[in-house]
Amino acid sequence: MKPAQFDYYCPKTVDEALTLLEESGFDGKIIAGGQSLVPIMNMRLSTPDCLIDINRLQDLDFIDYEEGLVKIGTLTRQNRVETSDLIRQHIGLLSEAVPFIGHVQTRNRGTIGGSLVHADPTAEIPLALMTMGGSVHIASTDEVRTVNAEDFFVTYLTTDVMPTELLTEIHIPIWEGRVGYSFQEISRRHGDFALVASACQLSVDDQNRISDARLVLGGVESVPLLVTEANELLHGERLTDSLLDKVASIVSKVIEPESDLHASADYRRHIAQSLAKRTLQEAYVKAGR
């Protein structure tokens, strides 16, 4: 298995990368960590004419704290995200999600931005971004625009990033007050793609009533699925067994999982309900502490 031929460019600045992208039009493809792109190139499922390597753009490798926000550069390696104290302290859901991605050897190279633009429907970072209500910066030679997670994921392996654009930064809001979160997934083997993944972040008031909840499921649709109906139901409530059952039945109603070699649609529906309940429960317990 060897990739097809391509031209290779290694820009030294973001501007240079954007100019190269514009010049190459639909033929250009960005390579960051390459942990998803290179396998599909090796299998010749993807044969880009031109690769633009952003690994030398050190300006895009950062984790910064700003009032109410954590900003992460697109080139930040998943391993750095996983071990960052700043991320663990302020946006802990992401720290909890990253160890589920592949293996330590792929996380050493794989980047946060690469995972987002690859947009595998079972991937962990897209799910975490959606759950925490984050947004991304997308740059071209003309402008830098901001897109919310809800509008970023279009369908399987497709995002709002156009061929001449580069995702540069990820912004994740820090939730105020008593906040809890949980990330769980089920896969056949550790490090495999998730059959179904579930993430939940919520905040509670001083009476332990849920003031804001975001439950998101991965692997059940073409994009991470925000379970809006459940999140509305939870608002203002204390979490009880009957409420959990109601959430599970909403989940079962709104998802349309597919059958494949790894799991049947029925099994995916079953674990989606179980994981939704588990993550909700764990997030609620953590928030109440």
Binding site: C10, G34, Q35, V38, N42, Q105
Partner: peptide, 20 residues
């Protein structure tokens, strides 16, 4: 798996040109 700049990575998922 090999070590590039103090991190263990898959050498089949990198191009030789990237280790310049």
């Amino acid at each position: 798996t090999v070590i590039v700049n103090d991190s263990a990575v898959r050498s089949c998922l990198m191009f030789a040109v990237q280790v310049d």
